[in-house]
Amino acid sequence: MIETRTLKIINGKTCVMSPEIEQFLSGMKKTIEDVVMPNLSDRFAQEQASIVAASLGFLGLIQDKTFHYELLENQEYKRVLTDINELLSNTFSAPAAIIETTTKVTDHFDTDKVDDPTYLRPYKFIRGSNEAMKELLCEFIQQQAEMPTELRTAFEALMKPFFKSIELRERSWVKALGFDPEAEQQADIADLLYKDGLLNIGKR
């Protein structure tokens, strides 16, 4: 079934990436569980092998969603940093250090423009941009102590729903690792990322 496989075009010819990554991972997991583990006598080795098998199972679930996860984060961080810059540009009371951070944000948006077709970028570019934006947002959060009360209140109001969205996204992402006592209440990561078959960007 061609639609279940990943297509690549090389020199004008259609090629198929086969087996898919999911199949590699699932094969390794089965081998560890059915062949390696039953033949291990050392308890430490057994424990480690079971964690390797569980990790392979987790990777099988999330491997096809990593690019879109980063892409969604990219859009979310651009949006919140734009909102913060707007908030700060509308106030006369922001201290100089905070203004400096807004300049860094503007500079970053020269590298990864807000309205760029970021989805065409390589994964590493997007991930790198996201890390830079996270650090900038953290700078703003640290600077809250220096904000006048009114500005700080407005900043906190802006951040609260953003914090909530991070919380929900990350908890869905790690749901299958088995640490979450509320796992059943967390959305599946696919449901959280996609709506109507498209990446859930800009929808609330």
Binding site: Q48, I51, E170, W173, V174, L177, F179
Partner: peptide, 13 residues
């Protein structure tokens, strides 16, 4: 090493 990566799930919770 494998367990330490796996434990990141606890961190997110």
């Amino acid at each position: 090493d494998a367990m330490m990566n796996f434990a990141s799930g606890l961190g997110s919770v």
